[in-house]
Amino acid sequence: MEYLVVSTLNGVVHGLLLFMVSAGLTLIFGMMGVLNFSHAWFYMLGAYIGFTCTRTIGFWPGIILAPLLVGALGVFVERYMLRRVHKYGHAHELLLTFGLAFIIEEVIKLFYGDFPVSYQMPSYMRFAAFTIFDTNYPFYRLFIGGVAGLIFVGLYLLLTRTRIGIIVRAATFRPTTVEALGHNLPVIFMGVFAAGAALAGLAGAVAGAFFPTSPNMATDFGTLVFVVTVVGGLGSVEGALIASLMIGLFISFSVGLNWALADLFGIVGLGPWAQAFGGILTLKLSTIANSMPFLLMLFILLVRPAGLMGDRQ
């Protein structure tokens, strides 16, 4: 019971964190179809902006400034870079944003050094929200979950209940029609890209105070955010949320399970042979828990290529 509750709690919050980081990419990659590899680096940039603000003007101004500044960078990147290469296809976008990722990481290392920086949340936020089975549950985890929840509700309402949302969704399906109706398509795309980048910046500023802010924090998320977007279904905010939660829960639960393929062989009496064979057969589930997202993506793509909530191929 304890295991079940604690694992669920941890998994949900980890999933929400994942969603927070990848929500912006759902807009950029999912809706606009732009392969923005530097998304996780935008997230890192947000964390470093948050860190700098905490040192100078305070934690909360950082939370506000990070999305604004990263969003502004997004505008610049879309307007002056990606728009020029969009017509050449995915590979060019990928390559361009790959270069951007290198630049962001190296510039951060240049100014902030190679080691993690001490980005701390305000001390009044450092307390246990509640205690469950003798385990303190930090308030900040709930805060992260709450911000992610807000992002989800905001995005969902914006996309489904407002005029802007309708235009944006229409623009991703029938760009020429939307343009013919008199909407300024390039501005819409720029706005969506900026919003996506800003969300990454916000995620960085929020999560960076809890998880270490270091020059390596982007690499960890680099491809994972794409996994979330693809598993959820391109362009589906609900899908991204479900995928993030699935991955979070999956990892959280598998950590506690010492299953290995060899155990399966044990059922048919081949256990000792499998143990002796070693390698892939004796690998415990808890050991490879964090490689599971890729397995999940593989499975989803082969079974339901449009993703969990996607409706196009």
Partner: peptide, 11 residues
């Protein structure tokens, strides 16, 4: 566990 891949050690 996996090397430098884990974002959340709570589990």
């Amino acid at each position: 566990h996996d090397v430098n891949k884990i974002q959340d050690f709570a589990p």
